[in-house]
Design a protein around this nucleic acid. Structure first.
Lengths: 340, 340
DNA sequence: CTGAAAGCGCTAACAT
DNA sequence: ATGTTAGCGCTTTCAG
């Protein structure tokens, strides 16, 4: 007998225990518990009864090793605190719930090395699929994804060079389209308030697209205010205060996130500014919790749930493709942009 | 040779492949890759080089089966959309990051049967520990938790009968203490606006505690408005509108969540009500994103991060105890309650 | 419909 | 410092 982990309270219960209790072979128990093959009703009942009475919980480690099948899907996202990622997970879950597959989530904290590590750990469990947020990964991570031999789907973003399949929106396009709307509606003195983190690739892309939209209209940003860290009303409020104090003639505030935009909106309302006449605001993402602010913030819905859904569908179908699914973000003018 | 999963692209690379490439035994490769035992520097280098070149990723399934050690910690929570749970996960992660343990998250969606299923699935991976939100579980779930033979910690709540260890706050106490504060500060016509879901055990407990606090002061709720579903500004606003319309003499609004309270706050401010003189508000949880509202909402900080931390510490220490760690929620009067 | 044998990829234990 | 052996708990395969 081999030594056991000193932490083991009681030795683990095995198929053999159930088999003995039911008076059948291990194989029969295995078949019954996996609803596989033909087993007589009488035997089934006996086995189930024995398993239930003993409180048997199958050992998936052993099952996975023997069958070379692991019903897990690795999901790698930067963070759970940013509400966008739980939304994607919701979409993934809505599909996987109809299959034997289970999502397993890991977080990279916007750190490429940590992402590499998380991907490595996930692949070492030999999952049936891998869903990773974003297109920017370091070389080892890309190599692992390329050679995993399982469906790999990069999600949220399609501006770049996917390793395999990708499902997302163009953030450059989202920024560009928003700029066109802003200009079309007559705003001219436009400020950007958003993330300075180069790790926030998608915010950077939106900024780039927006800037290009301005350039094509012969405009540039009248002011810019960057910050590092998470979004929230507080940071949105203080950035807005700072920008509007030093550039009082600004007529439009473009934020990297609805959360920051909400802080800015509250600031503007307190100051008695006329929205959307005197000043307009827009954010990004469309968060349901924010319905109920005094005004609906103009935004682009980033279609997070659908992105999760489509990615999970590719994995569930075991699609070893390099298909790119480009969804179109939905522009929602809300109440904070004047009509064109 | 056994049949392989039809999905397998290429056959999986094994230790043996690395061993052959490096010209050593599988055992030596295993030792090098796990940094175990003494291996000569020369051999180490050769093995690492071979593994790197081949892009070898170890098979944790096989490793776990052989060593009877699985460095996973199951975490079962109702949902990821409710911001409180990611906060707890953050606390768990902050501890587990310093260990070989990895959290694996499953969601029950406030459904006891689904929770049972998720716990069963988790235990079938033979994790090193299990952290489950709440104290209310069905009988099979409790039985599995009791017999898991690993550290099991129930988190968030201590009002009840834990299966093993528990880390949390008393929600009955949180409600009771808030009621005392409200009464002490002179409010008398008090309304409750919150969840009606019997699956939201903790909200129910806070309501119970609050009600008891009122009773002891010779008071009852002047109005009550229940709803089902997630919290948000929109529902908070509409509930508040309804309550204040039918009971205009209300002088305090007690919400089940800061998110709903925020919607109520915005409604009150729009109506030009004098806060906290004419009317007071309080929520529960203390969410950082909400710093930046026009006023800070009175609340109780539910200490979510610390709860996660303490629970993970018990698991990391392999503590097979039934210790109950009762944290004290922090009362934050904010700006929406008049001074006592 | 049921069972026996073999082995999944790795590691503990014991050599040497 | 390195190798050999046995076996983790289950499923595949093949035999009855």
């Amino acid at each position: 007998m081999r030594g056991r982990n000193p932490f083991d309270g009681k030795p683990q219960m095995t198929l053999r225990d159930v088999a003995e209790a039911a008076g059948v072979s291990e194989m029969t128990v295995s078949r019954v518990l996996r609803q596989r093959g033909d087993v007589s009703e009488k035997t089934r009942a006996r086995v189930f009864e024995a398993a239930r009475k003993l409180g048997y919980v199958p050992n998936k480690i052993a099952g996975a090793l023997a069958s070379n099948r692991v019903n897990l899907v690795g999901v790698v996202i930067p963070s759970l605190s940013n509400m966008v990622f739980p939304d994607v997970l919701g979409g993934i879950g809505s599909v996987l719930d109809g299959t034997p597959l289970q999502p397993v989530v890991g977080t990279s904290r916007y750190d490429a090395e940590r992402e590499e590590h998380v991907i490595y750990e996930m692949l070492s469990w030999r999952p049936s699929g891998l869903i990773v947020a974003g297109l920017e990964h370091n070389a080892p991570a890309r190599a692992m994804m390329a050679n995993a031999g399982i469906p790999v789907v990069e999600v949220m973003d399609v501006d770049g060079d996917p390793v395999a399949a990708a499902v997302g929106i163009s953030h450059v396009g989202a920024g560009y389209d928003m700029a066109r709307e802003v200009v079309r509606r007559g705003y001219r003195r436009i400020a950007y308030l958003g993330s300075s983190s180069i790790a926030d690739h998608r915010a950077q892309k939106r900024l780039r697209g927006f800037r290009q939209g301005l350039t094509e209209a012969g405009l540039t940003f009248a002011d810019e205010r960057f910050y590092a860290g998470g979004s929230g009303f507080g940071i949105g409020r203080s950035m807005t205060d700072e920008v509007m104090t030093r550039s009082p003639d600004i007529d439009f505030l473009y934020y990297n996130s609805d959360l920051n935009a909400a802080g800015g909106l509250l600031w503007c309302l307190e100051k008695g500014l006329d929205i959307p006449g005197q000043i307009g605001l827009a954010g990004f993402n469309s968060f349901e919790v924010l319905d109920g602010l005094p005004m609906r913030i103009a935004t682009m819905d980033s279609r997070r749930h659908e992105i999760g859904r489509r990615a999970a569908e590719l994995v569930a179908a075991n699609a070893l493709t390099d298909e790119v699914v480009r969804l179109i973000p939905k522009f929602l003018p809300g109440d904070t942009m004047r009509p064109g």
